[in-house]
Amino acid sequence: MSALIREFDAHCLFCKIAAGQIPSKIVYQDDELFVFHDIHPWAPVHFLMIPKLHIPSMAQLGPEHAGLMGRMMVLAPQLALQQGCSPYPDGGFRMLSNTGAEGRQEVQHLHVHVMGGPRPWLRG
């Protein structure tokens, strides 16, 4: 495991949220993933999907993370529908993952935003 990737980072906001040290409105969780509502939503439906493993960003992903990321991508549409997004093709949702300073990543823990719901919520 890379020196940047660890089970838990005591200084990481999202690690603390996943560990229950900071309250959140939970959407879903299992042994590997934690999903919670964004505290500053950009859309009627806006939640974050994170691995419980502290991976700083997409830039640190390796082949060993393919299964984890695949699970996130398969789970996202299910959770989007459960949270109120209308079904494809007339409905849908947006997924976004900022990576690094130039990608406007604010929290250094890999996370995927899932946003949807009735417009107008165009932003970003």
Rank of each mutant, 00 (worst) to 15 (best):
A18K: 03
L68V: 05
R6S: 12
I50Y: 01
L122F: 14
W121D: 08
K25Q: 14
D9H: 14
G84I: 12
M115H: 05
L96A: 14
I22L: 15
R119A: 15
V107I: 13
N98V: 00
Q60S: 05
M49E: 03
M58S: 10
G103Q: 09
A59D: 08
S2H: 09
F36A: 07
W42M: 10
W121I: 00
G117S: 13
L110D: 02
L13N: 08
I5H: 02
I39C: 10
H40I: 08
Q29A: 14
R104V: 00
I22Y: 06
W121G: 07
Q105H: 04
A43M: 08
F34G: 10
I55T: 06
C85V: 06
A80E: 01
Q105G: 05
H40S: 09
P77F: 02
R6K: 14
L96K: 07
G62P: 02
Y88K: 13
S2W: 01
E7K: 13
H11I: 05
H46M: 06
T99C: 11
R6F: 05
P120D: 14
L79F: 02
I17P: 00
A59E: 08
L81E: 14
D90S: 14
P41A: 08
Q21Y: 12
I55Y: 02
I26M: 14
P77I: 05
V35A: 14
V27K: 15
G91S: 08
F8G: 14
G116S: 10
K16I: 06
T99I: 01
D90W: 12
H111P: 04
P120R: 00
L53M: 09
Q82E: 15
M95W: 09
W121V: 02
F14N: 03
M69W: 04
P63V: 06
H54Q: 04
K52Q: 05
F14Y: 11
N98R: 00
H37E: 09
V35I: 12
Y28A: 09
N98F: 01
M73I: 10
H40Q: 09
I22W: 04
T99D: 10
D31M: 10
V45Q: 11
P120W: 03
V74P: 11
R94M: 06
P44Q: 09
R119G: 15
H109N: 02
A3T: 15
Q105V: 03
L122A: 14
I39R: 15
W121E: 04
R123V: 07
S57F: 01
M58K: 00
P51A: 11
M49R: 04
G67D: 12
G117A: 13
Q82K: 15
I22F: 08
A66D: 07
A18P: 12
R123Q: 12
V27W: 11
P89I: 13
A10M: 07
G100S: 06
L96R: 07
H40K: 12
G20Q: 04
H54T: 01
V74K: 15
R104S: 07
G92C: 01
H65E: 06
L13K: 07
E7I: 07
R94C: 06
I26F: 09
L81W: 09
E64P: 00
F36D: 02
